[in-house]
């Protein structure tokens, strides 16, 4: 009996112990990845979106400049999103339209329609790290979040505006990224991002982005009304505010090509 019971017992104990062991065995890398996958998953299915964007740029001296942009985006499964932006301000670039097919890795495809020249120009550059319209936002800060863009490492839990947050470190895969890493705060209930610290190529603190005034759309998709980016090295900052969000308005691929770029007003 004893001989029989003992192995049984040990199997039972092993089974009991191993269940939590699996959870414990999740490495910080795996946990970081899991959080990011969940965050992406929760926002899937918005199909298309339209909104108005207002940017206020400030320099260290306190001078300001305003940019007004209307933006349409299309959700693409298995690749980065497509977006088309029409500039309303400053006045001398009014009507300029920007089409972008973002890709998780590698350069994005970008075109710009210049109304003064009445021509579409493809932008051929490795500008992912470059500033968007002279703001403190780089292209890579504004393009859609794709899981493949980074590798991950969960660091800790931390209090944040959205309750308790996961703090996850993200390492860009693309070598043209301007960052060595990003430190991201996501709340544990809704997986919304509240804060991102950016570290430049020499791993020094570069910028901090904070998200404010989250609204939920269609009972599912959370969008922040105000994003504030502060550059710690230059003292410059950009406030990006959103309004008039619309989802599932029936946009399709044909609204996002070179011809639609010319038509966009």
């Amino acid at each position: 009996m004893n001989l029989l019971i003992n192995p049984l017992k040990s199997v039972l104990i092993a089974a009991l112990v191993s269940a939590p062991m699996v959870a414990l065995a999740e490495t910080p890398e795996e946990k970081g990845m899991a959080i990011s996958v969940e965050s992406k998953k929760r926002d899937l299915g918005w199909q298309d979106m339209q909104a108005e964007m207002n940017m206020v740029l400030r320099n260290k001296q306190g001078q300001e400049s305003i940019r007004e942009i209307r933006m349409k985006s299309l959700e693409i499964n298995g690749d980065g999103d497509k977006s088309l932006s029409v500039f309303d301000k400053p006045r001398d670039v009014k009507g300029t339209a920007f089409l972008s097919f973002s890709h998780p890795v590698g350069a994005d495809d970008q075109w710009l329609y210049l109304p003064a020249l009445k021509r579409v120009k493809r932008i051929a550059s490795r500008n992912k790290s470059g500033p968007f319209m002279g703001s403190e936002f780089a292209y890579e800060d504004l393009s859609s979040f794709e899981v493949e863009k980074y590798t991950y490492k969960y660091l800790r839990d931390d209090a944040c505006e959205g309750g308790t947050c996961f703090v996850v470190e993200q390492y860009p895969v693309d070598k043209n990224s301007g960052y060595t890493r990003r430190l991201v705060w996501l709340d544990q209930s809704e997986y919304r991002i509240w804060k991102i610290d950016f570290f430049d190529r020499k791993n020094s603190p570069l910028k901090t982005l904070t998200y404010h005034d989250y609204q939920q759309y269609l009972g599912k998709h959370w969008r922040s009304d105000l994003m504030k980016m502060v550059n710690h090295q230059t003292g410059k900052s950009t406030d990006l505010s959103w309004k008039s969000y619309q989802f599932k308005t029936g946009l399709s691929d044909k609204d996002f090509n070179k011809n639609s770029l010319k038509r966009a007003r």
């Binding site: 670039v93 920007f98 490795r126 500008n127 470059g130």
Partner: peptide, 15 residues
């Protein structure tokens, strides 16, 4: 023209 050239150029510059 100047404004839009500059915009195009600025949007092409890296970090």
């Amino acid at each position: 023209l100047s404004a839009q050239y500059l915009l195009l150029y600025e949007m092409s510059l890296p970090y």
